[in-house]
Design a protein around this nucleic acid. Sequence first.
DNA 1: GATGAATGAGCGTTCATTCAT
DNA 2: TATGAATGAACGCTCATTCAT
Lengths: 227, 227, 227, 227
Amino acid sequence: MTADPKTRLRADARRNRDHILAAAREMFAAQGLDIPMEEIARAAGVGVGTLYRRFPDRDSLILAVAQEAFTQVIDDARAAAAEEPTGWAALERLIGRSRGLQVSFQLAWSSARARDILLADPNTGRLRDALMAELARIVAAAQAEGTMRPDVGAGDIAVLLVLLLRQPPVGRGPMRFGLDRAVAIMLDGLRASSTNPLPGDPISDADLPFDGEHAAAMSRLRSSRDR
Amino acid sequence: MTADPKTRLRADARRNRDHILAAAREMFAAQGLDIPMEEIARAAGVGVGTLYRRFPDRDSLILAVAQEAFTQVIDDARAAAAEEPTGWAALERLIGRSRGLQVSFQLAWSSARARDILLADPNTGRLRDALMAELARIVAAAQAEGTMRPDVGAGDIAVLLVLLLRQPPVGRGPMRFGLDRAVAIMLDGLRASSTNPLPGDPISDADLPFDGEHAAAMSRLRSSRDR
Amino acid sequence: MTADPKTRLRADARRNRDHILAAAREMFAAQGLDIPMEEIARAAGVGVGTLYRRFPDRDSLILAVAQEAFTQVIDDARAAAAEEPTGWAALERLIGRSRGLQVSFQLAWSSARARDILLADPNTGRLRDALMAELARIVAAAQAEGTMRPDVGAGDIAVLLVLLLRQPPVGRGPMRFGLDRAVAIMLDGLRASSTNPLPGDPISDADLPFDGEHAAAMSRLRSSRDR
Amino acid sequence: MTADPKTRLRADARRNRDHILAAAREMFAAQGLDIPMEEIARAAGVGVGTLYRRFPDRDSLILAVAQEAFTQVIDDARAAAAEEPTGWAALERLIGRSRGLQVSFQLAWSSARARDILLADPNTGRLRDALMAELARIVAAAQAEGTMRPDVGAGDIAVLLVLLLRQPPVGRGPMRFGLDRAVAIMLDGLRASSTNPLPGDPISDADLPFDGEHAAAMSRLRSSRDR
DNA sequence: GATGAATGAGCGTTCATTCAT
DNA sequence: TATGAATGAACGCTCATTCAT
């Protein structure tokens, strides 16, 4: 009823921002992180200036795309935990679906530089904690059901997830199919029927994957900037 | 008495080539594929001109480093097959050792561009065939022993290997340890005791991993060059 | 009872204009002539759009600031002539105070570009004439008193004034003190007791300082714009 | 007799360097310090890359031009002291000739930024000391002769010199002539016959002009870089 | 054959100016 | 009329590659 001009303006800006993020996600995935900023802008249908108004430099764009992707993984884990009847089903869905998130997530991990940018941001820690909490919940449920071997922790699941998420996107070829089977093999290795002892203790949700790396990433970024 | 100048020259040239390859391997791993050619030359102790004499452009240097790494994986598979008493032991050694090869291998797969360069080279097909043949031998042996589930093929092992090799190098942190456990989980999933059916048929040594990608990679490279 | 909206608007506009000029004067002095327009707008508390409404481009803003500064010098000369008891006292005050005007004046002369903008404006000629007339009055008075050497003209004073005004602003260091002494030395050189002949004839108020430069400045500006 | 290739190469490099410096000196003077690097390169007859090989950024080019100009002033002072029969004659020549050096020197002082670059360089201190030593020698000689008033020091001369050197270059118009007269007026103010007391004490060669500014300039440059 | 100086295309980034709201 | 988002031209700088020595 009341057309708020401020809201309208914001809608435009937000639309631009979203276009830029979507374009960046796709271009990064397709061409790598060093795609010219101008091409991203063109793909988003805006001028370079607008891109730079929203994201003051390439790093901040990479960070935004990466955290968006990270957030999607968390949302997916949360949805799986909430909607699936059993912990094992949630686990299967999460690891199975994970390849669907690949396209957006893998870029975040595709280069040492991208990783550093992500780790150097303080918000990343919170995202990590949220994801690990979700995984811990799923693992606990599956183990309580007796479907998952008891000697693994949320950190172990995170490692497997990262293995899968880091792969470059696959289309519809044999590799895609091979990944489905690899996931199934991993899941079999996680079943309660697997009794061969694993090395060391379960990796809890406090151990992985980037604890203590924040400072290191920051200093690496700083020194690379000075170079 | 008279040292043949040509032979002497060749020895020098070979030394230079080796220095350059070693420097490139290290710099690529440490700094990424877009390290300036001049820094590689400096690290190799030669001038840029010499570097360009041996490798006419950056792509050919990347290709040489990548194929060298690929060859190491093959050698390792061959050695595992030859020296281990059982197929399962060879498999364990290969997958376990794989992380040792990571450092040199992952660079070859670290970017879409590097992958295209590798795939576009006709020699890569031969290397792939050699690796798959080795894996097929190990799988057949392990299945004959009854230690490996019968519904997997050499291609499945290749997929798992690629999952592991593509990870960025890890030092001695929790991630390193997590990878050891992930490997153990995968191995458990491969044991004969795993009876949950896998989706589809075993992936044979003819299906994976880059069949049909040669032409695609060539055209991608060509179009990126024209851009 | 009813405040005329037009009048109100004009008051607002004038306030905006004044804020912009004040902000520009300070930012120009502190950061140089190439400070971003947006920063000037922010310092003035208006949007860039408003700034551009008042001053259609950077040059016209520079011109406005410069002429404002010029006007201050004239006002000061006029006040000195009116308020001081003797011509010599007026001269001392003018040259002595000149450093107080420095801060705002020197920016107008700090770059070839600013000078051209100023010279290209037809109004500058009127300001120059007003200043020279004032100086001529002071010089005539001082010479009539017998305190100033007779072989100098208003133009000579203008040159000395320009020498001082063009200096970048000094704080409270040794340079500030040094300038006080330099002024005293100059004044001593101007006294009637100085009898060493000066080269050429006195520079009258018609000779200096930018006669014939108007056209040159305009063509320089034009060609720099075309470049 | 022996053509040393190394020397020849160096000669080429040096020639390039000299061309670049000469072009920069002229372009800076004519167009200001923010002339595009590419135009300087073009004027020097080299590519931008070569310019950047010799001077890694604009600041270092400004610094080189400025110090070259500074060195010329020192050389001139030294020559005047050595070749003129009296201290007063040396002083007259130095201050008179100073406008000849203007063209190259004034750029060094034409902007706060240039001044900071110059002051931040540790070598500048040595140049300053050399110049002040020369001025002190000239002043002492002229005062010993009884031609210069005894209550001025080398620092006072430096201030006057700076006043003149900071002026933008003048061609052959009335301003040029006016400067000749201004110089004569200043010289008259410096004669032994001037007996009006100056404010404060003579400025010695230890007081001026940039003592203690090195650190300040460095921090200003640093903070402007962060902006 | 080896060297490293020179080139210049190309990308990141900034900012003057315009214009939709 | 005021605002500030959008645009894109322009410049600083880097680095792959070439070529004179």
